[in-house]
Design a protein around this nucleic acid. Structure first.
Lengths: 191, 191
DNA sequence: AAAACTTGAATAGTCATTCAAAAAATTGTT
DNA sequence: AACAATTTTTTGAATGACTATTCAAGTTTT
């Protein structure tokens, strides 16, 4: 039991250190030594746990995807109308925990490197397809059939664009304001 | 005169090679040797013209920004109503020449590395501010004051999100379809 | 002849990964 | 509890491979 625990604790520590280090140096420039220093460990021990740098990056993206999915499911189950579920998807994406410069920045780093890593690309496509089907399911109940796809693209691209802007902003972002803005965009798309 | 000409020709060739090579290998992974091979030149000659890899990357981004601005101005001057000018901005961003997987991909590479390069960050911010003011100017004539900012965010983030999606798509993209979709989103935002 | 251009080879540095050996934790035995 | 045996974890140092940049020596153009 405790054998597994130590491994899990180390895994989480190293992944958190990876998030910080990638945000600080960039995905393309970050080194194993940077991450090790951030975690207070050695580069060799990272390889002991994750096998390689690529393995660590993939594990980190899985971690972030899990967080995103968890936030989504939480809000989703509390909402009980199509419109509220749309708000819930937005609120999850712009929640206090997820919508920070640090996290948006690392998401963008992963997006940029996905085309060159089949593993990352696969994870990204799965996630995007899931969000797309959520949006479609709710919008079908709210709009005539010919308007569904346009509204979905408007909302989904808006979300990605907002994350991009947050990643590139040098100031800190305001999640509450982002949620309010997203809500207005949803209303606009449904009008 | 011809002294300058040779230099300009080489500059363009090397920048085009950079676009291809960065798209193929990624901004973080591309090497001077990759770019040189693509251009049929040597790595040393690139340094002769651009001083350093960073100088080459900055010049390449400037080149892309110029292209974008030129496309925008062309469409803009032909349009003569606020709505048509909004369409024109969208048409420029989704023009056949600009909206390709290759170019969207390299834009995303630049976005991702902007936070770690003051030069790139500066260029990016200037460009974004310019687009923002264009959108604002037109929307102010079409919507009540309190709706302008929401519509602008919806449109500008939509554009960035669409480019992001294009960069990550493994198939080739369809600029004409993207323009039609963008037009529907503009109509949605103005309704 | 002079200036501009090109490059092969050398330089000086970087980095991920491996590995042997040490340290720490866990287990089994008494 | 005590102690030894075993497994798991950690790391310093070495390895091998890769890179941007420089430069002297050529080639081409003016």
């Amino acid at each position: 039991m405790s054998r597994k625990r130590i491994r899990d604790i180390r895994n989480e520590e190293l992944i958190e250190a990876t998030i910080v280090a990638v945000h600080r140096h960039g995905y393309g420039a970050v080194t194993m030594a940077d991450i090790a220093r951030e975690a207070g460990a050695s580069a060799a021990s990272i390889n002991y746990y994750f096998g390689s740098k690529e393995g660590l990056m993939e594990a980190t993206m899985r971690h972030l995807l899990r967080k995103l999915r968890a936030a989504m499911i939480t809000g989703y189950s509390a909402a009980n109308s199509p419109t509220e579920r749309l708000y819930a998807v937005m609120n999850a994406n712009f929640s206090d925990q997820l919508f920070t410069v640090e996290q948006c920045s690392i998401w963008m780093q992963f997006w940029a490197s996905a085309p060159y890593s089949p593993h990352l690309a696969r994870l990204h496509h799965l996630n995007r397809a899931r969000v797309r089907s959520h949006f479609r399911a709710e919008l079908r109940r709210l709009l005539p059939a010919e308007g569904v796809e346009t509204a979905r693209q408007a909302l989904q691209n808006y979300m990605d664009g907002a994350w991009l802007q947050a990643a590139l902003s040098d100031q800190s972002v305001d999640p509450a304001a982002a949620r309010a803005a997203a809500r207005r965009v949803v209303d606009l798309a449904l009008s």
